[in-house]
Simulated assay, not measured.
Amino acid sequence: MRLDSPLTPAPINLVEEDPAAAFLAQQENEIAGIENDSEDLQPFHPQTSTSVNGDLFQESNGPTDGYAAIAQVDIQRQEPESLRKWREEQRSRLEALDSASKAAEEEWREKAKKELEDWHVHQSEQMEKNKANNRSSEEAFLAESDGPGAEWERVARLCDFNPKTSKQAKDVSRMRSILISLKQTPLIR
């Protein structure tokens, strides 16, 4: 059997790539790139002491002056140029986003204020229409009144006493019988 025949299965890769390891490797590469930007800075090496034949000697890998060592540490703590540029760009980007968001917020406030004013105008127009409609209905109702003593005729006109034509779902037969009995024998005060 040939190994490169189409019936031969492809070799299975038993090693799966770990996404966390890939991420860490990528971060290490980026950090190495940032550190390469600051190659001109000398790393600080602390002084160490060693013993030779019982005598104590101090080895120096950095400056022996205390102030020079502090200055060198300060230089190491300074941000690399690439980080400083990134921070400035990020700050300007955030300021631009902040101003854009404030402008959008102000625009939304103006739009909301206009919509609220429009709603108030519409509401007052609707209220005036309702007032006018109610006044005309009241005037028509008062014009229909037949004078004192004709209250039961008005009630009879407003109520439908025909049980077959009643479109109400509730049983109003008791109310109907009470109104008819009150019409026939009014209460004496």
Rank of each mutant, 00 (worst) to 15 (best):
S60L: 04
L142Q: 10
R176G: 09
K170F: 08
Q76P: 06
R154I: 14
E144T: 09
E79M: 14
R135I: 08
R135N: 05
E16P: 01
E81K: 09
A96K: 09
A150L: 09
S124G: 02
Q27T: 08
S60V: 12
E105Q: 13
A132Q: 06
P19L: 11
S181G: 11
L3R: 07
W108S: 02
W108V: 07
F44L: 15
L142G: 00
E35L: 15
A10P: 02
F161G: 01
W108K: 05
V121G: 00
L97I: 07
N29F: 07
L116C: 05
D55T: 14
T50P: 03
A25T: 07
V121W: 00
L83R: 06
K111I: 07
H122E: 07
E110K: 09
A96N: 05
E39L: 11
K129V: 13
F141R: 03
Q90D: 14
D18P: 05
E151K: 00
L97E: 11
S177P: 04
K129C: 05
H45K: 13
D40S: 14
T185A: 00
N36L: 13
T50C: 11
Q42N: 02
D4Q: 11
H45I: 15
D160S: 09
E153H: 10
G149C: 05
A20R: 04
A156L: 06
V52H: 06
S99Y: 00
A100N: 04
L41P: 00
D55Y: 06
M127I: 13
L41N: 02
A132R: 02
R109T: 06
W152R: 04
F44Y: 15
S124T: 10
S124P: 00
Q123K: 02
N130H: 07
R154K: 14
D18V: 05
A100Q: 07
T64E: 10
K114A: 13
E117V: 02
I188N: 12
H45N: 10
P148I: 07
G54H: 04
N133I: 03
K114V: 11
L116K: 04
Q26G: 12
G66M: 09
P63A: 04
T165I: 09
V52P: 05
W86R: 08
N130A: 09
Y67K: 06
C159M: 12
A156M: 09
F44N: 05
E107F: 04
S173D: 08
V52W: 08
P11R: 06
S181K: 04
L94Q: 12
R77Y: 09
K164V: 15
N13S: 04
H122C: 01
D146E: 09
I178P: 00
S60T: 08
R189Y: 04
L182R: 03
E106M: 03
L3T: 00
E128T: 06
R157F: 14
D40C: 08
K167Y: 09
